[in-house]
Write a protein that binds this DNA or RNA. Structure first.
Lengths: 349, 349
DNA sequence: CTGAAAGCGCTAACAT
DNA sequence: ATGTTAGCGCTTTCAG
């Protein structure tokens, strides 16, 4: 391992000078020629800072902890983690992911993260929920991902559920569907409330009236298929907005059994059909992809801005907003999802 | 943060003594009474070692790096990571995961891991492939996960593909299926070869003869559905062994369109139907679950044994082998997958 | 059996 | 503008 000491030795300056240069804290403190030489030798030797050693003095490790209890049980975690890691990496941080599903104890894992000196934390859910920040994270920089804090005390990022449903439903309207159904989720979730409202509002904006009988809220189980089946038989919808991929599947199954072809006889807009699934289905499906990557990305950038106490705008975060693509977009069209970024209500740390 | 210095102060001994005790290196070096007292005070104060500080002297961080390029694009990574993290955590290590899909450069990510002093590495694929170990990992402890090294130089763990297919096919035979099809994968993969062989051998062991026309190797795309559809019409199979969940889906779709009920008219054994998917489908499906968790678990334990240069048996690793459950197991039956653990051909480090 | 002292690689006051 | 010094928390000889 090549150390500052070695560079100091080779360049004939002291370690402190090398330290200044390597941390870009020269600028009027070290003669430019010297600084350049130091940098050159460092490059040549392939010098890399030892984050352990510097953390000992600075109490900063340039690591951020990512905590989620659903890494193993949902296919969406990967995208979020990748987004967070991408931003972290770009900003010179390392993301350390711990999942607390299975037998893992959340507090233990958080302790491990703290022991290793994480500078900040991402606390992630895999579907928008009101969430309490764990007690031991109370006075650390924390950002919630795909979740919203109970008290408005913690910054968060979450999908604009209302707009997802509004856009999806509008799309079905514009595609000429007359009887648009919503296959929702019967568990209480922010996503469900927001989407039902968006569906309803879009219908009304299009001059349709909301029909309760076209709304079926189901769980992910056997009776769900019957419920959707009944909907097919009794209401004969020609368009479906589906809460998620599992719900969309009930529609495919029912359609297949009746000889109906999706894209011809009925239209379906689903949310977040996962890739494995979508590869098979996508030719006949319009999807709203929840921007897990983007949420992770933003959250990581945000927590870095909190750690370094500088405005988020100084960091390079792409804008994830994009307009709804036109209806004649190639199939499978992707309806882009907008995001809601919440600043902490109190000072963001 | 509570330090050794503080404990030393409170107990009236020196830091070195505290160090000995905390590292369980007392035993004939520190008087038992003193040791006990030190431990007591440490507990009371909630002392935690500072891994940064000790790494400075020992060049050990008790972290292991997990590298994969498919974290975001497959739903299976989560289980593997969770397994690895569980074992790591149990053994007092922290798992640091980096994914190299998306725009991430693998070498950069490995460098980051090395900079942070990872003691060993897990290099994971999400489906069994012959794999080269990255150059910069050459002289570090490395274990391959769901992959096999090109030269037998690196320990690895991978599913027993032959037996997966053998067991699945046998199960279909025992369930009374007469015409058992294999919906395979047309890409060259170890998994495909092994499974085709297992399918064939199981048929022959049951006194059936292998019929090429019952084998359909497909990609994950449009033509696949037609190929399976043709198989239904021309060969009228009553049992299906499917390479993975996407392939199984073609069978469901074809069956639904023909009014055939799975579990009554046709039997299906799939591999690795992911949970999101399985929640909807599982009542009618027998699955072979690839033991991603167990692979991750074993691999992490293995790499720790390499790092600490002590035999794997000293560590607490559960045996993941289990017998095939009986055919009258409640549906969905899970066919357990056996694993192949490969030691390095040369000395294991 | 226990403590003093040195040093891991780095940063940050403080001198020059 | 650069070097000296001290010390972060811990491990590890080496003396006693």
């Amino acid at each position: 391992m090549v150390t500052m000491k070695e560079i100091a030795h080779r360049t004939g300056v002291s370690v402190s000078t090398v330290s200044l240069v390597m941390n870009h804290r020269d600028e009027g403190r070290v003669k430019p020629a010297i600084a350049a030489h130091v940098r050159e030798v460092a490059d040549e030797l392939g010098y890399q800072v030892n984050p352990m050693a510097s953390s000992l003095r600075t109490n900063r490790t340039r690591t951020i902890g990512f905590i989620s209890e659903e890494v193993a049980t949902t296919p969406y975690a990967g995208g979020m983690i990748l987004g967070a890691q991408t931003a972290a990496s770009k900003l010179g941080y390392l993301l350390i992911t711990v999942s607390t599903d299975g037998g893992m104890d959340e507090d233990d894992e958080i302790d491990a993260l703290k022991r290793y000196g994480a500078d900040g934390f991402l606390y992630a859910k895999m579907s928008n929920r009101v969430t309490d920040v764990p007690a031991r994270l109370k006075d650390c920089p924390v950002v919630l991902v795909d979740a919203t804090g109970r008290d408005g005390t913690t910054p968060s990022i979450e999908p604009d559920e209302f707009r997802i449903a509004y856009d999806a439903t509008t799309r079905l309207v514009e595609a000429g569907c007359e009887r648009i159904a919503y296959i929702g989720c019967s568990e209480p979730m922010l996503a469900q409330e927001g989407r039902l409202a968006g569906y309803r509002t879009a219908l009304e904006a299009a001059g349709r009236k909301f029909n309760e009988r076209l709304v079926v809220d189901v769980l992910n189980n056997g009776p769900a298929l019957e419920a959707v089946s009944d909907l097919f038989d009794w209401e004969r919808p020609d368009g479906f907005f589906c809460f998620n991929d599992a719900r969309a599947w009930y529609v495919y199954e029912c359609a297949a059994r009746r000889g109906l072809v999706i894209g011809r006889d009925v239209s379906v807009v689903g949310v977040d059909n996962h890739r494995v699934f979508a590869e098979t289905l996508s030719p006949r499906l319009t999807t709203v992809e929840l921007p897990h990557f983007e949420m992770g990305y933003w959250a990581a950038a945000k927590v870095v801005s909190m750690i370094e106490k500088r405005p988020l705008d100084d960091l390079d975060v792409p804008d994830t907003r994009a307009p709804l693509p036109p209806l004649d977009a190639p199939v499978p069209a992707k309806v882009h999802c907008t995001l809601i970024e919440k600043e902490s209500v109190r000072a963001a740390g």
